[in-house]
């Protein structure tokens, strides 16, 4: 399989299942049978590493390396080096990561939803056109601009997916969500009103002074 087909959502899923490291080894740039497969792979893994860093997972657990099929010794070197690295970082959710188990697994669940979601997939797919021919307005992006756009989406999508994941379990108040997710409550409030605008969240009931919100079943 071409590394270009490695789905970031599967990567997140694998980590959620408890693996400690994942190494993606592709061909050298220029050697790709599908021409740009390895470029795409690199972009996808870079983005996934960004997201891992954001959620508090040591991003070194995921690596993208290159060698050709004839270079057995290089391959061995890459693998043993990676093996060393993962051993030094230690088990998932331990001292090597900013966010610990079991919390990290909840984060990874939301991360999987983010990576499986349409926004990130679509935008990552737009990387080459954006950098080379431009967006629908003909504006050509620099790498930096493209990365900024991805970062912005990662931050917001993560937060929104975490909120949605908690709401899927049970209806909740803004305060509860904020406490659970360590996001400032005023920010959660804004997300909730925005999700309401989109028809994805609605008021369930009011208990005492506290409005409780639930999903409408209209999520994408």
């Amino acid at each position: 399989m071409c590394t270009g087909r490695v789905d970031p959502a599967l990567v997140a899923k694998a980590f959620k299942k408890g693996i400690d490291g994942l190494l993606v080894v592709g061909c050298y740039f220029g050697d790709c049978h599908y021409i740009t497969g390895n470029h795409q792979a690199k972009a996808k893994m870079d983005m996934t590493r960004k997201l891992f860093k954001f959620i508090g997972l040591n991003e070194e657990r995921l690596a993208f390396r290159q060698c050709s099929s004839g270079e057995a010794s290089v391959f061995v070197e890459i693998v043993s080096e990676f093996d060393q690295k993962i051993r030094s970082i230690g088990p998932l959710g331990g001292d090597g990561d900013r966010v610990k188990a079991p919390e990290i697994f909840k984060k990874l669940e939301a991360a999987e939803a983010v990576l499986a979601g349409e926004k990130i997939r679509w935008i990552i797919g737009k990387r080459t056109p954006f950098l080379e021919t431009g967006n629908v307005y003909g504006e050509i992006f620099t790498e930096h601009e493209f990365n900024r756009a991805i970062e912005m989406i990662i931050v917001e999508e993560m937060e929104v997916q975490e909120i949605l994941a908690r709401l899927k379990e049970t209806a909740r108040s803004v305060k509860d969500l904020a406490n659970d997710l360590a996001i400032p409550p005023s920010r959660v409030f804004r997300y909730i009103t925005a999700l309401k605008r989109k028809g994805m969240v609605a008021l369930d009931k009011v208990t005492g002074q506290t409005p409780i919100f639930q999903l409408t079943g209209q999520e994408v």
């Binding site: 989406i153 999508e157 925005a194 605008r197």
Partner: peptide, 14 residues
């Protein structure tokens, strides 16, 4: 994928 402050709701929402 782009959120911005909502002017119509005076910035309460996105």
């Amino acid at each position: 994928p782009v959120n911005m402050f909502d002017d119509f709701d005076e910035g309460f929402s996105f």
